[in-house]
Design a protein around this nucleic acid. Sequence first.
DNA 1: TTGTCGGCCGATCGCCGACAA
DNA 2: TTGTCGGCGATCGGCCGACAA
Lengths: 231, 231
Amino acid sequence: VDRDVWLACAVPLSRLPTVGAEVYYFPHGHAEQCPAHLPAPLPAPHLFPCTVTHVTLGADDKTNEVFAKISLSPGPHRGGPSRPDPTSTSTSTTASDNSPPQETIMLSYFTKELTLSDANNGGGFSVPRYCADHIFPTLDFDADPPVQNLVMSDTRGNPWQFRHIYRGTPRRHLLTTGWSRFVNAKLLVAGDIVVFMRRANGDLIVGLRRTPRYPLVFPGAADPDHQPQAP
Amino acid sequence: VDRDVWLACAVPLSRLPTVGAEVYYFPHGHAEQCPAHLPAPLPAPHLFPCTVTHVTLGADDKTNEVFAKISLSPGPHRGGPSRPDPTSTSTSTTASDNSPPQETIMLSYFTKELTLSDANNGGGFSVPRYCADHIFPTLDFDADPPVQNLVMSDTRGNPWQFRHIYRGTPRRHLLTTGWSRFVNAKLLVAGDIVVFMRRANGDLIVGLRRTPRYPLVFPGAADPDHQPQAP
DNA sequence: TTGTCGGCCGATCGCCGACAA
DNA sequence: TTGTCGGCGATCGGCCGACAA
């Protein structure tokens, strides 16, 4: 996954450490994300000085959820110890360090939280004005109705096609054909956030941020047998 | 999985070894079922004398495909070597030994290979006369049409409900409502075999045998993204 | 400007008897 | 006896403008 795409999809507070940075590993922050893997009650909060040896950016093949794999090498810091950042974790999207390099955003992007109508009803998506004007290619407003096909890649590079139309009274931008297929394939629900990105060369990319799921695995979802059919 | 249910679903040639039996492990038979896991070209066919230490019967949670996990302990046989059975394998449905105990079938069962109509058309299943007469509960033929709801468990114990009706000209037995749901959930295709079983207490069980799939993993099935929607 | 709703049209699902193998 | 077919009614998906927030 490209760094700029990753950053656009990650939560705004996310900061990526650079290789060689001296950080603190905070076990409690890590355990917070993997409550099922707790081997035993953790000892009192403690910070371990570490050095970042490798950073790998990725996106889940199925859900497109972005993550960062941060390899740490334990050991004391060479320079004077700076104030430890208690939010440091590893292999999570909220990893950060003490000297975040300012990222230059190389692409335009727009985010929207899915409404109930976006996720459930009729299979359409209401495109906010700003997104249609600044991210999507401009429509031919002489046509009636103005309509175009958009092809955009997800964060794994797979293409998705959407019908973008400007219609209704009052007029508004919508994504229709293709949208519900995307929602179903990505298992999106209201509250999830879509990220539409446009590169300088015009390429379109669609990314995702998911709201926390409770529980992460739906009971009975793995085995459809437990849902016997109604008469 | 109960032993009698397992035996009814396994292919007729299947025989289960007993713990302590002295058998031969035949690597080529095993490799035949796992062509993808061949570490290297196998040496010339060879038989390894082994003793069965444990037998576990199971059914795949999703597909209900039955299998036997047979633990072998390598070592020379104590008694005089009997004629080795070249079909012996481990962890497969075709496992066998040299002294199959005669199984007492504790249940009635009926098998049918799915036709194209059973698997594809209209969501119904043509019930052969023998199955309706000897396996299913008898219908009330005074009703018009004679109809009943059947609830049967799959080999994992999950309940499935089918509408059993006797109708048409000429009259015939059919499973209608509920059948297509079962076909879709179990990913059945024409050529697969269903096994309807009735225990002495009247309980109904439905099992499956699958025809070999080529390939075993459908290309592109894992990632729906590679199938962009048609306009 | 945009979220939600009801209308409605077309596609699909699935129950049906007809008919022939 | 039973496999396949065409018919057709019910259901569902999904595109639409209306309307109000």
